[in-house]
Amino acid sequence: MTRPIEHIATVVRAGDGVVEVELTAQSACASCHARMACGMGESTRKRIEIATPEASAFTAGERVTVSVERNMGMTAVLWAYVVPFVVLLGALVAASLAGWGDGAAALSAVGGIALYYGALYLLRERLEKKIHFKIHKQ
């Protein structure tokens, strides 16, 4: 079994079955081959909400470890970066092959991306059930 992807985080708030944490990219991220794909390479701080029945056991300011299984992390990368790229490229190529002008082809590609992210937004609850973050006290 592969090791999960882990980050040290600070609890921002906790309650109602949700713990909001702030992740800070560590120096280990600089050497990670997937740092740009996971999004930690482009920013030093990220905030995420983690649903857990033990939310009341955490307090603001507490340092915790947040983890996600590697296959779930790769699933998130797929939906957030790979599929939109394919949609963008597919719409652009299809519009160009249909004989549309450059401007119309570009607009169709942007429209395809907008539709994709709209669908992703509508299906967010379903996706949240597939990608599970775990939170542990240090």
Rank of each mutant, 00 (worst) to 15 (best):
V82Y: 12
A25F: 10
R35P: 01
A60W: 03
V11P: 01
A30E: 14
E62N: 02
R126H: 15
G39S: 06
L97I: 10
V18W: 08
Y121D: 02
A34Y: 04
D16E: 13
W79T: 12
Q138Y: 02
A14G: 11
E49R: 15
V64C: 08
R124M: 07
A55R: 03
E69M: 06
L123D: 11
L23M: 07
M72L: 05
P4R: 05
R70I: 12
T52I: 03
R3W: 07
V87L: 08
E49S: 12
A57T: 10
K129I: 03
L78Y: 10
E42F: 13
K137C: 00
A55T: 01
T24G: 11
S31R: 07
F58V: 05
T52C: 12
S67N: 12
I50L: 03
L88N: 07
G112N: 12
A94C: 05
A119I: 14
E62P: 05
G111D: 08
F58L: 03
E20K: 15
L23K: 11
Q26A: 15
A57M: 11
G39D: 14
A119P: 04
R124E: 08
L123T: 15
Y81M: 10
G90H: 00
A109S: 09
A98G: 05
G61T: 13
L122V: 07
D102E: 11
L115I: 04
L89C: 04
L127I: 04
Y117R: 04
N71L: 03
C29T: 00
S96V: 07
Q138R: 10
V11S: 05
M74E: 02
S108C: 13
G103H: 06
K134W: 00
A14P: 14
L115K: 03
G39K: 01
Y116M: 06
M40R: 15
I50M: 02
V77F: 13
L120A: 13
V64P: 04
E42P: 00
V19Q: 02
R63F: 00
T52F: 05
A51S: 11
Y116K: 01
L78V: 07
P53K: 04
K137V: 10
L107E: 06
G61S: 13
I131Q: 03
G112A: 07
R35M: 09
T10V: 12
L107S: 07
F133I: 09
G15A: 08
R47C: 03
Y81F: 08
